[in-house]
Each structure stands twice: as structure tokens, then as C-alpha cells.
Design a protein around this nucleic acid. Structure first.
Lengths: 345, 345
DNA sequence: CTGTTAGCGCATTCAG
DNA sequence: CTGAATGCGCTAACAG
């Protein structure tokens, strides 16, 4: 391995000068810079990152923590896409990205400890938000830079996070259904522990109430999304005395399962049942029908979280921020006009 | 930050002894080990990884390189799943995982250079295989440990890789269609630059020829999978004078698009058209109909590649290996018996 | 503008 | 069984 000393010797300067050339220190003459760079190139010199990290006490690396993945939820295309967004910024800033590898909550917690305590990374991005999360407690105790994608449970004012306005999005997409004449609208959500589910459902309810429509408890189902993609939820809904005519599903991938079940049961979307959902991942445009969904700009969610985190790691007293990424409804083919039910309400 | 010296002072031993305790060196008495460990715990000592890496000249980190991701191909659930497999091993071995962040071929190449030259990682896993790939050339020149997921283009005997027997898989899944009475079977593949596409198609052809069936060029289409998920491919096939009755699609996600297009055009799967594909990602079980597909054990593909790589980084002259992960057909609902066409061939 | 010196935190000789 | 000394490769004062 060729070191800074070798380059120094070869170009007839001192090691510190070489170091300064690497940092492009303005106090070094262009002439010697050129000379040194030439030597570096010829000798194939590349700075050793560990040595550098050791002295500057920073790694220019950030850790990305995925949700515990015993389940299939990780197969959601949401993750590659947000990773892509995070990656874009990380790359631009010449940082590197260390990905979590734990499968269980326990493993993940240990891993975060290792990352933080061993100075593997300068900061951490959490790709999930769970109630009573040890990881968040740990990070806060340690006062270690982190940002959360989603909404924190508690400490909203001291945790920097980037999120969608899921309440508003839920309201808007539900209103979209209402505007198309639907009055019997059900909600199919994922785990009730997740803030996204809670917020989107709250938006759904707010929209219905504002329109003076019913929000029967029967219409609010939570699918354990892994088990056959919400099949049970759909079966429940269509077996009701008055089944809904519109469905608000809290995730595109779940919509795929809902769509499948609906078809199996002889319901045609959107003719017999309208359907809207959230995220706008790639698959939502290739299903039949293509899904009307709210685009939450996953890529941007990732990019902004990385940006915020890096700022935080670079500036000790960067203020706590709450970053809301705008969303918009993508109109496709899963919604159809519903003749207003005169007998209704 | 509490260092090895602090611990040494606090427990009344020398720094080198502490270092030996960390390494669990057998030449240290259990007694002092206990004493030192107690001090470490009390003081909250954790070894600094950069310092350690510097002296041992290894990072216990491996780099994972994703395909260039300008396109939506990255949204394939294949990636989170293979990452999960890789992660499982990395985690068990107490390594860490550095993920590539480049979006273009150029960016990725630079990144790999940085990882290798800067000693960021001990080895690299390539999650793609492209013809004339600079990354592979670079890694080979440098004699840097790497393994490839998929089949290399050239140098098959000097590159360690883990792959599916895609030819065989293609043959089997096509035979499955043939066994169900299909005689007019088409192939819908992705980019012809990818080895998977080539191999699966070759298997498809071999199966048809072995059965004495036709393999018209018209039946072999390559969808630019990003653009509306193979819509054009399907439109082409069904507009043929004698359209096929069975489709071999080279990827589950692509099948989703094919399924959608087929439905839009009034074809019902599997009644009017049978469909089989590859990978067995989660979504293949929640579509309607659920897909009959080849389970390639993505998770295992990842795990084995990580395992092979780590062995390689730890043992200088670990032999080059070719690891084939077994596959199996998952029978679901996208294939139906086709009455044998007496007039055929 | 450049060189000298010191030290980051740790592992590893070599003594004892 | 343990300690003292040395150096991994680099950056950062401090001189000049």
C-alpha cells in the first residue's frame, strides 16, 4: 500500500504538504499541488479512510436502519425507492451508507449500539417509527444525530423527522371518492401500531364526517398485510349487509392483494368497487386497473432525510426540524362515478 | 470518549492487557479479564473501529453494489429480499454492510473505486451482471475479493458467483406448460443484455424443441420492462395471427404488467391464457390469479453470496466457486389445462 | 507557503 | 501471565 509518506518522498515535499494537497488547502502553491498530484497519480495513491477517520473523529458514513424484517413487509418496493433517495444525497456529499442487517428488534438494537458506540457512523436514519422504540430512546440518551422517516411517537419537538401529511392525504383521497358520488366508503389499513395507519385513517374519518357520511366501525378493518395481503379484510367487507362501494387502502402493495381478492369474489374494479391507496410505487401503474393513489414522493422522503441528517452531523446546533414532503393524487383507473344513492343517509 | 487507556488506568493494568482482554487472548488470567471487563462495562467503553481497522488492515465490512438505478427496475422486490439474505450472514459474522449509492454506471464505478482504494471494505458483492462491465475488470485487475450474483460474462472459471440454473429453470417451467397441453408458448423477457434473460429463454427454447414444438421468432419478445411493464410485448403477441396460449415471463414483477395488459384486452388468466414466471416474490402470491412461478430462493442467493465472499476475504487462497442455488416450481393458479390442438404441428 | 512534531486509539512485537 | 515500546496512516497545531 502506498502511503502519504511515499508520495511525499517521491515528490520531494513533507507528508503534511501532501495532506494539505489532498484537502486542497489554499495555502499550498498551485505548482507544488500539481507536482504532488502527479506523483499521487503515478504511484496510485489513495488516502486510507480508517487513518483519516481516526484523526478527524468522523466517518462521513451514515447508518440506515430498516424495520425488523421477519415479515414480508420489507418486500415493499417502498424500501428500494427510499434507499435510492437517500443514496442520491449520500453520494453527492461523498458520504457512505451503512445498512442495518438485523432481522429482529433485538438484533437491530444491538446493531445500532455497535454503529454508535464503535463510531461506525456519524448519524442514523430510521426507516420506521414504532411505539416505545428502544432505538429511539438510546439515540436520544446518547444525543446522537438521527432523523426519522415517519412521525415519532412522542418527543415530536425534539426529534427531526420527515414525513408525509398523512392526515391530509387521507382526507384528500377520501374526498376524491366522495366527489365521485361514493357514500359507503371503507378503510383497509395495516398495523395499528404504525403512525401512517393511524393518520391516514384519521384523515379518512375526518373527510367522511365533514361530508356528513357514516363511519361505521364495520368499515374500518386492519389487515395483517402479510397474511394473504388483506384477503380476510376484503372478505369481511363484502359480506356486510351493506357493503361499501369505495375502499381506501393504506398501501399500494396491500391494494394489490385487495384487488386480487375482489376479483376472485367477482367484484370488478372500478365498476363494482372503487379503490384508492397510497405511495405510488411502480406497481401501482401496471396493475389492472392502474391505481389511483397518492404519490408521497418516496424518493424525496429519502433524499430530504439524508440531507437533514448530514446537516445535523455537520452542525452541532442545527435546529430540530419537521419536514413535510408534499403529496399529490395520481389519477388513474381504479375509481368510477357512483350514482348517488337517494335512499342514503 | 473513553479509550483503552482509560480502562487500563481504571483497572490497574496496562493498555496492552486491555487490548488482549478485548481479543479474549487466552494468555490473560480469568481473574484480570473479569476485572478489566467490569471496568469496561462501568465506564461504557467501546473499541473504536477506525483505530482498530487502521492497525489490523481490515474493516470487516463488505460492499454491496446495486445495479444502476435510473430505472424502475430497482423497485423490484427482489432487491430488498436479497439484501435481507446478505444481511443475515453479515450480521451473524459481525460484519457491516456498505451499500452503493450511485445512480449511473459511471457513479457506481467511481464508488467501487473509492470503496476498494480507500479500504472502506474487505470485499464486494455485485448484484448484477452486465456485459463488458468496468467494475468487474477493475476488481479483477486489483485482485480484490468479490462475488457476483448471477452469471459472469466471461472468466467464469476465475470469478466466484452464485446463481440459479436459469436454463434448467426455464426448461422446467416451460415443460410445465407443455404438460398442461400448451403447444403455442411465447416468451416475454427483459433486457437481452442480462444473462438471466438469455438463459431462461434458452431453457424455454430447449423445452419446446425437445417436445417437437414450434419456436417462432414472433413468440420471443423483449419488453423494456420499465415502460408500462411489457404492455407492448403483450399487445404484439395477442395481435398475432395465431396467438400463444401460454406465456413464459422472465420476472414476477413483469408478470404483473402482463397480467394487467391481458385483462385490459379481455383475456382471462388462466382461462384464455396461461402464465408462468420466475422469482416468487411476495406479490406473486397476492395477484389474481396467484402466479405459478419458479422460486429461486432469493434470500438464499443473498446469504450464500455473502458467505462465499466472507470466506474469500478471510482466506487468501479460497478456491473460486460456482454456487448454484436450487429452485423449485411453485404451483399456483395461473396455469390451466389446454385442450390439445389436434390440428397442431 | 512549507516542514516538524505530536498524537488519534489500538494491536503487536519483544522483554520480563 | 503482563508491561513497555513501537507504529498503522493521517491531520493539525506550531514554527519558520
Amino acid at each position: 500500500m502506498v502511503t502519504i509518506k511515499d508520495v511525499a518522498r517521491a515528490s520531494g515535499v513533507s507528508p503534511s504538504t501532501v495532506s494539505r494537497v489532498i484537502a486542497d488547502n489554499p495555502r499550498i502553491s498551485e505548482e507544488t499541488k500539481k507536482k504532488v498530484r502527479k506523483a499521487m497519480k503515478e504511484m496510485g495513491y489513495y488516502p486510507n479512510i480508517s487513518a483519516r477517520n481516526l484523526v478527524v473523529k468522523s466517518t462521513k458514513a451514515i447508518g440506515v436502519i430498516m424495520p425488523s424484517s421477519a415479515d414480508k413487509a420489507l418486500q415493499n418496493p417502498f424500501f428500494p425507492e427510499i434507499l435510492r433517495g437517500i443514496g442520491s444525497i449520500i453520494h453527492d456529499m461523498q458520504y457512505s451508507l451503512s445498512l442495518s442487517t438485523g432481522q429482529t428488534e433485538e438484533e437491530i438494537f444491538n446493531e445500532v449500539q455497535r454503529m454508535v458506540n464503535g463510531s461506525y457512523v456519524d448519524g442514523v436514519i430510521l426507516l420506521y417509527s414504532r411505539k416505545d422504540d428502544r432505538v429511539v430512546s438510546f439515540l436520544r440518551e446518547r444525543d446522537f444525530p438521527f432523523v426519522l422517516v415517519g412521525r415519532p411517537f412522542g418527543h415530536q419537538h425534539t426529534i427531526t423527522y420527515v414525513d408525509t401529511d398523512n392526515f391530509q392525504a387521507g382526507k384528500e383521497i377520501t374526498n376524491h371518492l366522495i366527489a365521485h358520488g361514493h357514500q359507503k366508503i371503507a378503510f383497509v389499513g395495516g398495523s395499528q401500531d404504525l403512525h401512517v395507519t393511524i393518520a391516514r385513517k384519521a384523515g379518512y374519518i375526518a373527510a367522511l364526517e365533514a361530508a356528513g357520511l357514516d363511519t361505521p366501525a364495520d368499515y374500518q378493518v386492519h389487515a395483517d398485510f402479510l397474511r394473504s395481503g388483506g384477503r380476510m379484510a376484503v372478505e369481511h367487507l363484502i359480506s356486510l349487509e351493506t357493503p361499501p362501494t369505495g375502499l381506501v387502502v393504506s398501501d399500494d402493495l396491500m391494494s394489490l392483494g385487495v384487488l386480487g381478492t375482489l376479483e376472485d369474489k367477482g367484484f370488478r374494479v372500478p365498476k363494482d368497487m372503487s379503490l384508492v391507496s397510497f405511495n405510488n410505487v411502480y406497481l401501482s401503474e401496471i396493475t389492472s386497473p392502474a391505481l389511483t393513489t397518492v404519490d408521497v414522493q418516496i424518493y424525496e422522503l429519502g433524499a430530504q432525510s439524508a440531507k437533514a441528517l448530514i446537516e445535523k452531523t455537520q452542525n452541532e446546533n442545527e435546529p430540530t426540524k419537521r419536514i413535510i414532503i408534499p403529496h399529490r393524487i395520481i389519477h388513474r383507473d381504479s375509481v368510477e362515478e357512483q350514482p348517488v344513492d337517494e335512499a342514503g343517509s
